[in-house]
Amino acid sequence: MSWGVAGLRVSFGPTEALDGINLEVPPGRVTAVVGGDGAGKTTLLRVMAGLVAPRAGTVRRPRQEQIGYLPTRSGGFRDLTVAENLEFVAAAARLPGTGRRADDLLERTGLAPFRKRLARDLSGGMRQKLGVVMAMLPSPAMLVLDEPTTGVDPVSRADLWRLIALAAAQGAAVLVSSAYLDEAERAAWVMVLREGRSLVAGTPAEVTASLPGAVVDVDAPTDPARAWRRGPRWREWRPNGDPTAIAPTLEDVVIVASLAAETGRAR
C-alpha cells in the first residue's frame, strides 16, 4: 500500500494553505518536502499525520497508531528523562517494553550515555534525535518528520539522516520536510513547495533535468532580474538555452522555477 495525497486542498479561513497537491509516500522510500517558511510544508505533513482535514482531495494514510509523527522543534517531554520519554512512547503504543530496539536506536544516535538526563538538558541536536527515536520506536508504517534537522549542527544532522535512512531501510514510508535543498539530495524523491503549490517534483535527477533553458556561470549578469550570486560570481538563467550551460544544482533549479513563477514566464 502506498500512502499519499491527490488533488489536496487545505484552507484556513480565506487563506489557501495548499492547492492541488499530489504526492506519493511509498514504503521503503525517503520522500522530502522542501520549501521556505510559510510554503505549506507543515500543513502537508499535518494532513498526512491526520491532524488537519483537507477541504478537497483524497488522503491515503495508515491507521493512526501506525503513524510516527515528529512536529517541528519538539524532541520529547522536557521534564522527562530520555528513558522516561521512551517508556511513555512504549506504553502509549502498547509495546511490551522499550526493549532492544530502544537500546539499538540510542546506541546509534550517541544518546545511550544520557538515558537519565532530562530532555530539557539535552542540546538541540540531541533533543531532535530523541524526538526521531521516539517517533521510530513503535516501528510505524509511516514516519512523518517535520524539519527534524533545522538548527541542528552537521554532526547531529548526519546522525539524524542515518536514523531516517534506517527507518526507510526497515520498510517505513518516510516523509521528511526541510528548508534546505542540500538535504533534499539525500531523499529518493523531492517536492519543492512554494506558496502552497508544488513548484517542482521528482527524483533529484529529474528535478535537475526539468530546468527550462540553461543556467550559466558569469562574471557579471546581462539580465540582473534573472541572475543570483554564487560566491563572488553570478549564476544567470537563460530561458532559451545557452551553449555555455553548466550542470545546475537543485538550488539553481528551484531559484529558476521561483523566478519563472514570479514573473509569469513559466513554460
Binding site: 521556505g36 533545522t150 538548527g151 543570483w228 550570486r229 528551484v254 531559484i255 521561483s258 514570479e262
Partner: peptide
Amino acid sequence: TSGVAPLARARLWDRIR
C-alpha cells in the same frame, strides 16, 4: 538565511555581496 526559501535567500545574499 536559515529557514528562508531559495529565491529569497539568493536576494539576501545579493545584498550581502
